[in-house]
Every structure is written in structure tokens, then in C-alpha cells.
Write a protein that binds this DNA or RNA. Structure first.
Length: 678
RNA sequence: GCACUCGUAGCUCAGCUGGAUAGAGCGGCAGCCUCCGAAGCUGUAGGUCAGAGGUUCGAAUCCUCUCGAGUGCACCA
């Protein structure tokens, strides 16, 4: 609604500027005035034009005002201050349109490939991984087609680095540190399963221990590092006992990660694995393509001699600089032909670096490696779809996930440079369209406050106590596990639900507590903008009051309770507004308290559009909170069930119904359910 | 050393492409449950938007510098 009216206003202003002043392409700013008395929509465009037209802002505003009044849905246009144009909506018309669900549709063609989670499959998920997965999952919900929008085709990928050094480490731990045989490892996994223990938890501790073990004995240090390297090679090579054990372990952990994420309503469509990228030889194709496109070449001199490197953007300028005569005389002629800043893609020993593999993988994502693809096989069944995993020989019938029109990689900000390398490679290869459609959805890490670390029982040095926050580290076993946090949240919510709703059976109370816990956790991870470091604190994360998920859920539950007690169906309450004469009830102090909520409700599309454009789910989270706040205002100023005026009661019931509908919708985008009671 | 991000109320954070009196939550203080559920609401105190210049009709927002914080900068993975 707001989106539609704003567009109509912008279009009309553009028309007037063209016909009256012969101006085009003016960037017209709009804003929402600070209070309702000043209207619903405003523009300071007259200030902007004053100099260009050499005319007083107020005079320009006056010219424009006359032309804007006739826009459908606009009640009046007023000039305020030195030249603000304040637009007042036709409130009754707006309410009817919102109630009827009219809105600007958001849609687009072409697959959006969203990659998130991507936890190394050698340990349990922790709070940092939760932020990643919740951000990615929420962004997918914002884009996906649903009852509100046509949206975009979306596929969600969770990239699995199953041949990396982290997996090698836990294999080393079991085979060499603990001296278990492959058969004993198989038995261990069965035993853990029988005892109901989580494999990912078991490996969490083991991974921390093996990291120590490498360093523990100075005499053994080199030998142990050699074992690690050897294990890594066997892993990459495949078809051996080491690789088989690694596969068994990483697959078991992967199942655990999917289970953890499913508790939060997070699901995936495809799990591409590093092992297939290796064994299906993605890199060989990418390498040929890069050479053909002139971005990969063999370095013949300097520190990178014998490597295949990629020139970095801006490097040519430095080349010219270093080939100036005075430099050449000092440094020798060789310097002018080498680029010391070039990125090494293939090492002098012939192995490819991470960036190289990543370039190959991203070429595949955009359908730019036509001769390579994964094999696909089903891995996990969700209630309404299947998650596929990469394999060498897959099913004949399968969906395909490459050839994306746009990709979104949810990866933390510490990967900014490596991600930029991939984009630059695409651009250098001439795939500038792909480079433009590559979005690194970066976010700052989740860290622990020193205080929190101490409370968890970790030893914290005096130096670390002075730091603002401490980075979580799987290698050190330092962090809060995702399942532990969720368990604590559910327990805390359950205490409240048990006390408040003794009439519900235990299964129902547990479900309610779980929905509240998930709401609290998802909201907590989403309310911070992406580039804010979350210094994790139990007190804040476990809070159900103030700016939290449960606050928003509570508003929705209250709205539902009103309708239930009034014995009207939400749909009927909303439809009743269509034939009602609303004009008398939406103005004055009483009317404003109702209208303020409708105005907030009118902003759904504009908020969604903004959140998608900025890839910033926090915008939606914030809006959900504002909606709930506005509903609580309405709730306290208007006693719906005691209202005796028939028309006004219809309006109030309709308002509660539409508020419930929209809050539920917005919470749905955040992956948060509305409990049946709270 | 270089690059990137940031510095807003006691604490944690918002502040959209520059726009009207800089906003929330928590915490503090004072209140509100015979009335749709108090996981709620009302009121109140609290800010030199790190500092200094500049651009602009207008700057928390853009530019420069200074101070402070964080992250990233291997033929590692």
C-alpha cells in the first residue's frame, strides 16, 4: 500500500517536473513525517530544486501541491515549514485496500542460489554457525514465492568441505592419537548411537584435544605434522581406508548438523561436497578456461617462480611504475615483468589453492563450466521435499542446481578478501555479468564476552579479560554449542509455559515452549545488522522481554485471543471492513490510535523490498518489532470486546484480524511461529 | 606497514539514496492487574552522534586529517 502510493507520488512529481520545468532524472527523496499531524508521506524535493530553478522552495512546493492532490488515495497535500510537501492519505480507502490484501508484487525470473551454513563436518555447530544459518534461511524466506508474493525461484545450498584439514584432524585423532583401528572406529560410532550420544559433541572435544596434541611434545611435533599432511593427502586422493573413515565421520556429523538446523526450521535443497568438486575434476575445466581467457599464467621469475598465478586488478599500474628506467637500473630488468602481488592459484608443486577450487565451484554455480556437473543422490527427507547431496555416480532423474541467475554466499566478513578474489577472477575472465550477480552476504562474527567465557568455565588470561570480546574457536573447543543453547532456551520457556498454562497437556506445553525458544533465538540473531559483532551474552539471548521474538509472538497471540473471544473468524473480521463506512472512525485522537497501526501495516512491501535489496534481514526483524509495539499501543487504547458502537467494534475487530494476519506473515519470513497460547 | 569495517544515552543497538525536535530495548526512578493475559503498558531522568576541519539551504550520514577499537593481509587449509 505505502509502496504503491509512494510510486504514484514519484511518478506524478516526475511528470510535473517534466511538463512544468522541463526537468528529468531528478532524484526525489521521500520520507515519513515525524508525526501523524504532518501526514503520512513527505518530500523535501522543493529544497533540492530551489537552486536549479532559482526559485524559493515554498513557491516550488506550491506549484507541485496543486498537481498532487488528484492522485488516487491521497486526501490532501500541504506545505509545511520552508517548503516541505506533506501528503495525507485517504485513510478509509487505505484501510480497505490493506484489509483486502492489495499490494505491489515482488518478483523476478531466474534461479537465486543461496549458500549458507557450510560448517566443517568435524564438530558440533556453535553460535557463530547459528548466525550464518539463520541469516541465510531468513533471506531465502524473503525471496521465495509464497502466499504474499510471486518472489524468485530459490535453491538453498550447504557447501560441505569434507576433504579439508579439519576433517583430517579428527581422523588423525582417532587413528593415531587414540590408536584405534578402522573397525574400532566403526564400533565407536555404533556405540555412541546406541547410547544416544551426539557424534558432533564427541568430536568437538576430540578436535580440541588433537589440536593440542600436535603441539604437545616438541620431539614428536614434526612427525605428527607429517602424519597430518599424509592424512590430508589420502583424504583428497580418495579410494583408501583413511578416506572411508573420513567419509563415515563427516557424513555422521552432517546428519547431526541437519538435525540441529531442522530444530530451527532450517532446511536445504542440495549439499555440494568438496570431494566431488575434486574427483569430478571441476578444476581442470576451470584451469583451461582461465588460461584461454588469459587470466592464469605461469610465473617465470621472482618469489612466485614456478607457480601459476592470477594478476590482481590494478597490478598493471604497478608494473608500469616498476618499469620506469631509474627503478630498472636499481632492481634489474626482471622486476618489470613480474607481478609480486599476483595471486597464486597453482603452487609450484602442482597442487591447486583454495581460491582456485573456489573459482571452479563458482563458475559451475553460474553454469560457466558446461562440461562438468555433480552427480546427485537423495540424502535427507523433509516433510515436503528432499535434500540432495553430490556424488560421483548419481540418479538419472534429479533436479539441477547450477546455472543460477544470481548467487548469495552467506559467509562471515573474515572471508571478504578471498570472496573478492573470486569475483575479480570472474570479472577478469570477461564474466562481468556473473560478477555483478555475485553477492557476498557477509556478517561479523559471534564472539563471547570475557565474562561469558569465564561463566562457561574457560580459563581466560588477564590480557583477554581486557578485550571487548573473544572469538569462538572450534579448534580450541571454545564456544557455545547450538544444541546446548537451544536446550537452555526451551527449558527456560517451558518453566514459564508450565506456570501459565496448566490446562494444556505436556506435549502442547513443550511445543509452545519450543516455538518461543526458536522465536527468541532466531530474533536474537536477526535483530543486529550484519556488520555488528554480536558479543554473545546469555542474559540477553535468554531474555523473552523487550525487543525479542517472544514480544512479537505475544502481540500476535493477544490479537488471536480477542478474535477467539469475540467468536469471529479473522477472515470474516477483515472482510467486514469492505462495506463499513470508516471515515468517522479514523480521525481525531481515537481514530489516530487505530490509524497508526494501519499505517504501520501498510509498510510491509516497502520493508520487504528494502531488506531484499540490502540483503539485510534485520530490517524485517526490526519492522516486526515495530508492528508488535504498534499493536500493543492499539490494544491498550482500544478495548475491543467492550466497544458498544457497532461500526467501531467492527473496525476494531477488523484491525486486530489484519494485524494478526500481517504479524504472522512477517514472523513467518523470520522463521518464527505464532504459538497457540503464551 | 597496507586494505576493509566501525566509534551514537550507564549498557546493547537502530537511524533507509544527506532532510523536520537523533530513536528503541535493557538497566535506574515513579506508577498501572475487581476491565480483551502484566512475556504487557504509562511517565521520568539520561546524548558535544570520538575529536578537528571542509562541502551543503541542510550533516550522525558525504570528503580530509587525528585519536581509539576490531578483522583480514602465505605456494597454510
Amino acid at each position: 500500500m505505502y509502496r504503491t502510493l509512494k510510486q504514484a507520488l514519484l511518478d506524478r512529481i516526475a511528470d510535473v517536473l517534466r511538463s512544468k520545468y522541463d526537468l528529468s532524472g531528478v532524484n526525489v527523496a521521500t520520507e515519513q513525517p515525524p508525526n501523524l499531524q504532518l501526514g503520512e508521506l513527505a518530500t523535501p524535493v522543493a529544497f533540492e530544486l530551489a537552486k536549479r530553478l532559482r526559485k524559493a522552495p515554498r513557491a516550488i512546493a506550491l506549484d507541485l501541491a496543486g498537481e498532487l492532490g488528484s492522485i488516487a488515495g491521497v486526501a490532501s497535500v500541504e506545505i509545511a515549514g520552508a517548503g516541505y510537501l506533506n501528503i495525507k492519505f485517504d485513510r478509509a480507502a487505505a484501510v480497505r485496500r490493506i484489509a483486502a490484501g492489495e499490494h505491489f508484487d515482488l518478483r523476478g525470473e531466474g534461479l537465486r542460489l543461496i549458500e549458507h551454513t557450510s560448517i566443517n563436518p568435524n564438530k558440533a555447530a556453535h553460535v557463530g554457525h547459528l548466525r550464518n544459518a539463520i541469516l541465510g534461511d531468513t533471506f531465502a524466506r524473503l525471496l521465495r514465492p509464497d502466499g504474499y508474493k510471486a518472489g524468485y525461484p530459490v535453491a538453498v545450498q550447504n557447501y560441505i568441505d569434507n576433504t579439508g584439514v579439519q576433517v583430517a584432524d579428527v581422523v588423525v585423532a582417532l587413528l593415531h592419537m587414540e590408536g584405534k583401528s578402522p573397525a574400532e572406529i566403526d564400533a565407536l560410532l555404533l556405540e555412541l548411537k546406541a547410547r544416544g550420544e551426539r557424534v558432533d559433541y564427541y568430536l568437538w572435544d576430540l578436535y580440541a584435544r588433537v589440536s593440542q596434541w600436535y603441539q604437545a611434545d616438541p620431539a614428536q611435533k614434526d612427525a605428527r605434522k607429517a602424519i597430518r599432511l599424509q592424512t590430508l593427502h589420502e583424504l583428497e586422493e580418495g579410494n583408501n581406508d583413511t578416506a572411508r573413515i573420513a567419509d563415515v565421520l563427516s557424513t555422521a556429523v552432517l546428519h547431526r548438523h541437519l538435525a540441529t538446523m531442522q530444530r530451527l526450521g532450517i532446511e536445504y535443497d542440495f549439499l555440494p561436497r568438496e570431494s566431488e568438486i575434486l574427483h569430478a575434476h571441476f578444476w581442470e575445466s576451470a584451469r583451461a578456461l582461465m588460461i584461454e581467457r588469459g587470466v592464469l599464467y605461469e610465473e617465470t621469475a621472482g618469489k612466485n617462480k614456478g607457480c601459476w598465478v592470477m594478476r590482481r586488478p590494478g597490478a598493471e599500474a604497478r608494473d608500469l611504475l616498476s618499469s620506469r628506467p631509474e627503478q630498472s637500473e636499481v632492481e634489474g630488468p626482471a622486476v618489470s615483468s613480474t607481478d609480486e602481488d599476483a595471486k597464486v592459484i597453482v603452487r609450484s608443486n602442482g597442487t591447486v589453492t583454495y581460491v582456485g577450487k573456489d573459482i571452479a565451484y563458482h563458475l559451475w554455480k553460474f553454469g560457466l563450466l558446461p562440461d562438468r556437473d555433480f552427480g546427485y543422490t537423495p540424502f535427507h527427507k523433509y516433510p515436503d521435499h528432499t535434500c540432495w547431496i553430490s556424488t560421483l555416480q548419481g540418479e538419472a532423474e534429479h533436479p539441477h542446481f547450477g546455472r543460477a541467475a544470481a548467487i548469495y554466499n552467506v559467509i562471515d566478513s573474515r572471508q571478504n578478501d578471498p570472496q573478492a578474489n573470486v569475483v575479480e577472477a570472474l570479472r577478469a575472465m570477461g564474466f562481468s555479468d556473473a560478477a555483478d550477480r555475485y553477492t557476498h552476504v557477509n556478517y561479523a562474527m559471534v564472539a563471547l564476552t570475557p565474562r561469558c567465557a569465564v561463566d562457561l568455565g574457560y580459563a581466560v588470561s588477564d590480557e583477554d579479560m581486557q578485550r571487548p570480546y573473544l572469538e569462538v574457536s572450534g579448534r580450541k573447543g571454545f564456544g557455545v554449542k547450538a544444541d546446548d543453547l537451544l536446550d537452555r532456551l526451551i527449558a527456560a520457556a517451558k518453566v514459564q509455559v508450565d506456570a501459565r498454562h496448566p490446562e494444556d497437556d505436556d506435549a502442547q506445553r513443550l511445543q509452545t515452549a519450543t516455538e518461543i525458544a526458536v522465536g527468541a533465538l532466531r530474533y536474537f540473531m536477526l535483530k543486529y545488522t550484519r556488520n555488528t559483532v554480536i558479543a554473545f551474552d546469555f542474559r540477553e539471548a535468554l531474555s523473552f522481554e523487550g525487543e525479542t521474538g517472544p514480544y512479537v509472538q505475544y502481540a500476535a497471540v493477544r490479537a488471536a485471543n480477542i478474535l477467539r473471544k469475540a467468536e469471529v473468524l479473522p477472515e470474516a473480521a477483515a472482510t467486514a471492513l469492505e462495506t463499513l463506512d470508516l471515515a468517522d472512525h479514523l480521525h481525531g485522537a481515537e481514530g489516530d490510535s487505530v490509524w497508526a497501526l494501519w499505517l504501520q501495516l501498510s509498510r510491509v512491501t516497502i520493508v520487504l523490498e528494502q531488506a531484499i535489496a540490502a540483503a539485510e534481514p534485520a530490517i524485517v526483524a526490526r519492522y516486526a518489532f515495530q508492528l508488535a509495539q504498534e499493536f500493543n499501543n492499539f490494544y491498550h487504547r482500544n478495548h475491543v470486546l467492550n466497544e458498544t458502537g457497532r461500526d467501531r467494534r467492527t473496525l476494531l475487530l477488523g484491525t486486530a484480524a489484519v494485524a494478526l494476519r500481517e504479524v504472522t506473515r512477517v514472523l513467518g519470513w523470520l522463521g518464527i511461529a505464532v504459538p497457540q497460547s503464551m
